[in-house]
Design a binder for these strands. Structure first.
Lengths: 251, 251
DNA sequence: TTTTTTAGTTTCTCATTTGGAAACCAATTT
DNA sequence: AAATTGGTTTCCAAATGAGAAACTAAAAAA
């Protein structure tokens, strides 16, 4: 509330609609959307119609359900390409995936979250569910905690004042002081660990990527708990630190 | 012009901006965009600012150039998933790629164009440039001509009245009567051929995918000319027809 | 250095667009 | 046949939007 003048109210509402659609399964009705974004049906319908005309979404005329549309595909591909962090680090991350035989993610921070830019899947048959474009909390993910560890004290204060720490699993650390301890460790060691704090049974090792001392992203290796022991964890950590070094050297 | 009431002018303008950005290389200035979309700087800036606030785009504060933003990544991924044509046909198209060792594309029609939904790359070192989300003309591509061949006479009339046939290469067919002949052939044979009509040196074989006699997409195999002879072409055609049959059976 | 040009930002105002309550309609369900 | 549910249309006071012009900052030219 307050802030300068508003501009683009319809555009902002359209964005809310897309975000709502992202948060639920495919195929949404007008009613759902209208309730989901707290906007009356008449208004919502008009936006949906315009969005359809622009092929940003489409609707199945029989079921009257809405889906994401083709135009967004090109934009999404282009957005990925426009983060050249992907292009540069991809070969190294692929190597990391092959060395560890586990899933590797690349992400950037945005609005107190990490967004997946890339996912390199483990070749093994038991695999992890995650999606490019998906979002994670900073405080309970390996990439996120690595990013936190690179923040200044005042940035950290700001972050913790804006965010509500909510347990995703029984292992999630929701105490700010314990998180500060972890952040201290991460700074010393150069890597972060998510020990089932985000998803039950999944352990991740992460690190940030810097250029001219400025952080611009993070990556991590994720593995199901049953597939890891302290020996393998040690190796993964070594590979992560090597990968971080190689990528940063390239820049 | 005319049509019902306008709604969402800002949304539509924002779309124009994104489309303009798609049509040029990454990193665009306000001036370029403003000229590109024929809208004054003041108006354009306001939209760009809102779009940035929403993380649909971002700008490099030093160079003041605009790029596609992270939010679009998730939408794009979701849009691909929402065309379940991809999910169903992917295994068959992968098989086709492996059988032919050439690049396979999957696309849908939209606004008199074909949009690439999937690209399965040839394992060979000489490869083709194309991008998921990219667009092709119907009249000079294998997928496009296959789609044309599935249209009714009045749909074809409409298409040709709306589109301007422009040669992309020296081989592009720009005569409507010759295209009608080709369409007749495609209907008889069940597959279409693009013989360097879209890109010099690239030959493609395509076919549509139907469900309950309704077309919902098309796919194609593309190969550089030097890698093909009439024997291999025959094989590719067979594989394409087989793949079409398998996928349509699945539905 | 100073001047000129170029590109980005801000301001202001009238005309246009928008929001959303309510009426309406069509299809299910009871 | 009645009731419910969800999609569509209408309408106008009130809020937003367009864009010319003035302004500022930075880069290029003199």
């Amino acid at each position: 509330m307050a802030e300068g003048k508003t501009y683009g109210t319809v555009l902002i509402k359209a964005k809310h609609i897309l975000d709502y659609m992202m948060s639920v399964d495919s195929g949404v009705t007008l009613k759902d959307i209208s309730e989901g974004v707290h906007s009356p049906k008449s208004t919502t319908l008009k936006i949906l119609t315009t969005l359809s005309d622009q092929n940003m979404i489409w609707r199945n005329e029989e079921s009257k359900k809405y889906y994401f549309g083709t135009e967004l595909i090109g934009y999404g591909q282009r957005a990925m390409a426009d983060f050249d962090i992907s292009r540069i680090s991809l070969p190294y991350l692929t190597k990391l995936r092959d060395e560890t035989a586990e899933t590797v993610h690349l992400g950037v921070e945005q609005n107190n979250k990490v967004i997946y830019l890339q996912k390199l899947e483990s070749p093994q048959s038991v695999n992890l569910k995650s999606r490019i474009g998906g979002k994670l909390n900073l405080y309970c993910s390996a990439m996120g905690k690595a990013l936190l560890a690179d923040k200044t004290p005042s940035e950290l204060d700001e972050y913790f004042s804006e965010v509500t720490l909510k347990a995703s699993t029984q292992y999630t650390v929701t105490s700010i002081s314990r998180l500060y301890e972890q952040i201290e460790d991460i700074r010393e060691r150069g890597y972060s660990i998510d020990d089932k704090e985000n998803q039950e049974e999944v352990i991740c090792v992460g690190a940030t990527l810097r250029k001219h001392n400025k952080v611009f992203g993070a990556f991590s290796v994720s593995t199901p708990e049953y597939r890891i022991d302290s020996d393998k964890l040690g190796k993964i950590i070594d590979y992560v630190l090597e990968t971080k070094e190689s990528i940063e050297k390239e820049l």
